[in-house]
Design a protein around this nucleic acid. Structure first.
Lengths: 372, 372
DNA sequence: CCCGCTGCTA
DNA sequence: TAGCAGCGGG
């Protein structure tokens, strides 16, 4: 049995908004650590991953792991019936084919209950390789959205070049070409968000602060890191199974490895056998968040620790070309976080990651080859 | 080679916004005095003229005169990629077919560069007659926009009647008629903008202050004036060349004389041979402007010297009818200046003029005949 | 294809 | 804080 109480329905609304155009059906895999969703977009060009930590809920209980096969259209409809600041309770019986959504208005005198049909979705959960990226760019999500929007006026695709100089977004179009250079924000005096980049501060060791910006760990056992010393991006692109990225013109680089159908809950990432990610249990997270900016009823970003700068970490120059259409889509997550992180290695899918309070949404997009 | 540094991209954005629906392609003629654009609207009913003084730029350099053939759609797209307060640098090599637009964010860590294809446009630059108008109406541009908007709901055209009483805008529609009377704002206490109307204070003689409101001169050699004593409006409507206004139902009154292709800058009006306009050389214009209202970072109207009233100067009554569709279009320039000036003589094209810091945009529209 | 709503920008 | 633009829904 699953029962999860979400403080603000808005988070869920935004999440679903952010993926519903990419994905029509997907399984929410729930276990005692939280909810996870993973799905290829309809044309199998992009992959979306959503994680909501148990700790991100005001109350969370999941007796045993189970997949909740959700149709995004239905869920969208049901979620529209929630007000942004409603408390949202998600319930599912152990073997039920029904998901129950309850919305409690802040003033308890309104309680709405919806029941949505679930469906059986046979999803091959992909193992996402524990990639070490050559470049990581952190920037304001709004800026990313703006750039992508601007450039998509000019052309179909964007070339992203990361160098020490900064990140450059380049688009060649019929009538005009454009390129936008984002220099790294000066490190100092930026509440720690600029060059010092501790990405995940939540799990077991925050002592990691010493090894500064090289590591980013995610609570669900995935691990994505940047190594300055060694670069092994090649290990990302091989041993594909039967489900892989097969988008428009991009070819065989950087697929995801499908991991057949053992959705046994927790050990999802480990049988890839690569990451030394010590499987961590969810840390007891103080629910609610330390009141800063108490006045904002808006539910959003806990990410929000001050102004967001641009910061770049890289091992080597990276140049990749992507379809703007997809990036435009990813940018729908802008409302979820003020910050976005782009992780790139040559010939490997781009990872676009938005983190919000106790969870994240990540998009993977294979680069166009031939760099056209 | 052209290089012009504009303090606020917004000005250019607004300018192009204001004409892009009228004109699809046009030459920006640039010379050391600044940028000029002149174009007939697509249906050859209206004429637009834009001038941006060199002094209006933070930096301006133009080695030799050249036309920049711009497609407004492309330019619009590219300008959308600029934020309003970006610094905008326009560059073009001497013989290049490319225009480069660079946007520097206020905080320099974002630089965007766009390159837009230029095109060859064979424009017959028209000589705009040095008309002496019988009536000049100055009013808040917002008011003009409002009137035009309101009346265009009722009918297709508006009759403008200028008398000592004031200006009256009249529209007869199917369902309703409307007329709006604007009386002259009481002269006193209006920082000189109401009945006292020196429009251009820039050229050779500002000793003209004595002959008060009769003259308006523009820096690029054009001259438009009101003469109280003598009225020779007839001289405006004849000797047309090959390019003329040929709109819907309006006929042969008030065309512009095409002046073939000698875009030699200054002597545009003189070969009309009518006006006693002593050909004036461009006066040394003091760049920048006397700091008043230093606090407003907003880019717009330097025109903005206080509240704008309605003022009317006239030699004789004028009654003209115009297509509201066009006026509606002209009113897009409202954001460029708080003030608009309407210049009219019977049977002569209306001149609608917006002046902004070191430049202007002017529209000419032939009257409907038969006054329907 | 048009209208309304949401988000972003000024 | 208000207006404009882009996106989504009917």
């Amino acid at each position: 049995m699953l029962e999860a109480r979400l403080g603000e329905a808005a988070i869920l609304k935004r999440l679903i908004d952010a993926i519903k155009e990419l994905v029509t059906d997907a399984n929410f895999e729930c276990n005692e650590e939280g909810l996870n969703l993973q799905a290829m977009d309809n044309s199998h060009v992009a992959l979306v991953t959503v994680n909501m930590q148990a700790s991100g809920f005001k109350k969370y209980r999941c007796d045993r792991p189970m997949p909740l096969g959700v149709n995004m259209n239905s869920l969208t409809k049901v979620l529209k019936c929630a007000k942004d600041d409603d408390v949202c309770i998600i319930k599912a019986a152990d073997d039920a084919d029904i998901l129950s959504l309850t919305y409690e208005a802040r003033n308890t005198d309104r309680i709405a209950e919806y029941e949505m049909k679930l469906m059986d979705i046979d999803s091959d959960t992909l193992g996402i390789p524990d990639t070490e990226y050559d470049a990581r760019v952190t920037m304001p999500s709004a800026e990313f959205a703006r750039i992508v929007r601007d450039l998509s006026q000019l052309g179909e695709s964007v070339r992203i070049e990361v160098s020490k100089e900064g990140v450059r977004f380049i688009s060649d179009g019929e009538a005009a070409n454009g390129n936008i250079l984002l220099k790294q924000t000066d490190a100092p005096a930026r509440n720690g968000s600029s060059s010092k980049k501790k990405a995940a501060s939540d799990d077991e060791e925050e002592a990691q602060a010493s090894e500064d910006e090289e590591n980013e760990e995610d609570e669900d056992g995935e691990k994505v890191k940047i190594k300055k010393e060694k670069v092994k991006k090649e290990k990302v692109k091989k041993e594909d199974g039967d489900v892989e990225m097969e988008g428009e013109e991009e070819g065989e680089d950087g697929e995801f490895q499908p991991k057949e159908d053992d959705e046994d809950g927790e050990e999802e990432q480990d049988e890839e056998g690569d990451s030394p990610s010590k499987k961590r249990k969810k840390a007891p997270v103080k629910s609610g968040k330390p009141a800063k900016k108490a006045k904002k009823v808006k539910t959003e970003d806990e990410d929000d620790d001050g102004p967001v700068g641009v910061s770049i970490e890289m091992n080597q120059h990276v140049t990749l070309t992507f379809s703007l259409k997809y990036l435009l889509n990813f940018a729908k997550s802008t409302t979820l976080s003020k910050k976005v992180v782009l992780m790139m290695s040559n010939d490997v899918p781009l990872l676009v990651s938005y983190e919000f309070g106790n969870g994240f949404i990540r998009y993977y997009l294979a680069p166009k080859i031939g760099d056209d």
